[in-house]
């Protein structure tokens, strides 16, 4: 970079980087602690005074987890498969639904298009708690209580995904779409064969925003049957066991956090690319 850097006094720059280091440590330490805790043998978990880092790492907590779960009448693999099913179907459906709806909103004007987009923006301004009670009633009316559908289907229409996808799609040159139309492609084909391959970074962004939420879902008030419960619910049950289970709890926590974090490591540059278009325009 040849541009001349404007001066910010050395002291201030130094201070800012100290701040960055301190807060970086504040952000990272609990996660590092979780990882260390998961590999601690029992005597280190009960050690007084407690240690931050593990000394003799062991896989015992993971074995204990397997044993603990083998004795419960729902096998642990069931919690994992439930969580995978919810997270994968919920996320894939979301990317498909949101992108299909975003394409017309991003590239065309038609009656109602503006109003619909405004409603989507407004819906970013409140949290899902607001709609929890009528949602429960609607769920029970359509018979999705105690069914994975109650977690999967609402996630298909998560408004933040539509918003980000629409903002990103606006960059696709209209000439590209016009050319396809002249060649006789239908709107559906344009969506699937031209728009979708061009917005891959946005897919990843929707995935990184939706997947961790579903992956970390505890089933809320919708799921009652033990064999339909999720990993995060199992974690909650284990933590109830108190300090004796702290190691096993950390092991489950590690499994829970490693998946979204890996996903983000892989997709970071695409996500940043999408986020550049995320703004709310005047």
């Amino acid at each position: 970079m040849t541009e001349k850097k404007l001066n910010r006094s050395f002291a201030v720059t130094f201070l800012l980087f100290i701040l960055l280091g301190l807060f970086g440590a504040f952000m990272a330490l609990p996660l590092i602690y979780t990882i260390n805790h998961a590999f601690k043998p029992l005597d280190e978990i009960f050690l007084f005074p407690p240690r931050f880092f593990v000394r003799n790492p062991t896989m015992n907590n993971f074995y204990d987890l397997v044993n603990l779960m083998a004795n419960s009448w729902v096998p642990f693999s069931r919690y994992i498969s439930n969580t995978v099913i919810i997270a994968v179907i919920g996320t894939v459906g979301h990317v498909l639904f949101a992108s299909a709806a975003a394409y017309p909103l991003a590239k065309y004007k038609f009656p109602g298009s503006k109003a619909i987009f405004n409603i989507v923006v407004l819906s970013l301004m409140f949290s899902p708690h607001v709609t929890a009670i009528p949602n429960y009633m609607i769920m029970s009316r359509v018979g999705w209580i105690d069914n994975h559908a109650s977690l999967i289907i609402p996630s298909w229409a998560y408004p933040l995904g539509l918003f980000l996808m629409k903002q990103f799609m606006e960059q696709i040159p209209s000439a590209l779409l016009e050319a396809a139309k002249i060649d006789g492609a239908s709107e559906y084909r344009i969506y699937w064969q031209i728009v979708m391959p061009n917005v891959k970074p946005a897919w990843l962004t929707l995935i990184i925003l939706r997947f961790p939420a579903l992956w970390g879902s505890d089933g809320g008030s919708f799921i009652y049957s033990e064999n339909l419960k999720t990993l995060n619910y199992a974690l909650g049950q284990i933590i109830q066991g108190g300090i004796a289970r702290a190691g096993v709890g950390a092991a489950v926590g590690l499994i829970l956090m490693i998946v979204p974090i890996t996903l983000f490591v892989i997709s970071q540059s695409s996500v940043i690319q999408t986020m550049a278009t995320s703004g709310i325009k005047d």
Partner: peptide
């Protein structure tokens, strides 16, 4: 650094730690 700062918000219920 982006990963370090962003990770806690996607780590789900690891806040139990």
């Amino acid at each position: 650094m982006t990963l370090v700062f962003y990770a806690p918000s996607i780590s789900g219920n690891v806040f139990f730690i």
